[in-house]
Design a protein around this nucleic acid. Structure first.
Length: 287
DNA sequence: AGCTGCACCCGAACGC
DNA sequence: TGCGTTCGGGTGCAGC
């Protein structure tokens, strides 16, 4: 499932092949993926456009296309791939962008959760779903982070809230919390200053390391070339419930926190006794 | 303001 | 073996 590091990998790979290519035909096979404009207008407007810059904002991928800007979100399992335009289609392919020279950019998505918005160039930043995003997690100073983590919300909920900071998903939130030795239920405004600093550093380290590893492959992520990421092999808590913590050997637990499956070490991420939370460990799924 | 639950979708994992 | 059920994941929204 693509989070910031996976989207960044895809961006870097698309940047190798798309700039300068012109879209000579566009076919939307699954209308629900396209949110705006309506499908016929989407197909018509995008034809004749040439790929330019490719940006990332959190988990969103933005393509400069002449007078248009294509904004995509891969959600769970969306993937782009470059094919020969004559190659056979599979049942999970939802959009086709035929390029000059005979190649074809295809969008595949088993869950059909991904989205595409075609906006006028320069209008994307003010679109509600982008304007509301917090600063990108990779482009966030400690001072800004510290200000945003002074609220009485559970740290895990804040890490996942794209309005607070953009790009962090479930895997990297859990990993950053483990590195910082912070309990996911701790209210952010009850973090000590060293804890807040550790959390920031843990998050930066986690994201940079994941990009260096080519992302994480959980469920299905593969890059443009079909290569799986390796970061999941570096995970300390995610997907490791029941296994001993690498620091203290206490079994990792998985609980439902902030409405999400959350893996953590109950020993080295324990709450200080002065910090109270409602219903500690409520909804615990495994010992 | 912050939380919980739900819808979206469908493969995987599980239960019988 | 083969069916049926449940679950999860990111986002946006409704309701409390």
């Amino acid at each position: 499932m693509p989070e910031l590091p996976e989207v960044e990998i895809v961006r870097q790979q698309l940047l190798q092949v798309l700039p300068g290519k012109e879209i000579v035909a566009c076919h939307v096979l699954t209308p629900r993926i396209v949110r705006q404009p309506e499908v016929a207008a989407f197909e018509k407007r995008i034809v004749g456009s040439r790929f330019g810059e490719i940006w990332r904002r959190g988990k969103y991928l933005l393509f400069q296309l002449g007078k248009w800007e294509l904004v995509t979100h891969l959600r769970m399992e969306g993937r782009f791939g470059l094919f020969d335009a004559r190659a056979p289609l599979d049942g999970y392919t939802h959009l086709l962008f035929t390029l000059n020279g005979g190649s074809q950019l295809r969008y595949r998505d088993v869950r059909k959760f991904g989205t595409m918005d075609l906006l006028e160039a320069g209008q994307a930043a003010s679109a509600p779903f982008l304007a509301g995003l917090g600063p990108d997690a990779l482009d966030l100073s400690y001072e800004d982070f510290a200000t945003r983590f002074q609220r009485p919300r559970q740290v895990k909920a804040l890490l996942l809230d794209q309005h607070v900071l953009a790009g962090v998903g479930n895997i990297y939130a859990d990993e950053a919390l483990w590195r910082a030795r912070v309990h996911p239920s701790c209210p952010a405004d009850r973090l000590s200053e060293p804890e807040r600093r550790s959390l920031y550093e843990g998050l930066q380290e986690t994201l940079h390391e994941a990009i260096a590893c080519g992302g994480s492959t959980v469920r299905s992520f593969v890059d443009m070339l079909g290569h799986a990421g390796q970061f999941q092999l570096h995970c300390h808590v995610y997907g490791r419930q029941g296994e001993p913590c690498e620091r203290c050997k206490t079994p990792i637990v998985k609980a439902k926190i902030a409405g999400r499956g959350t893996s953590f070490c109950p020993q080295c991420q324990r709450l200080r006794t002065s910090v109270k939370i409602a219903g500690p460990y409520e909804g615990r799924l495994s010992p």
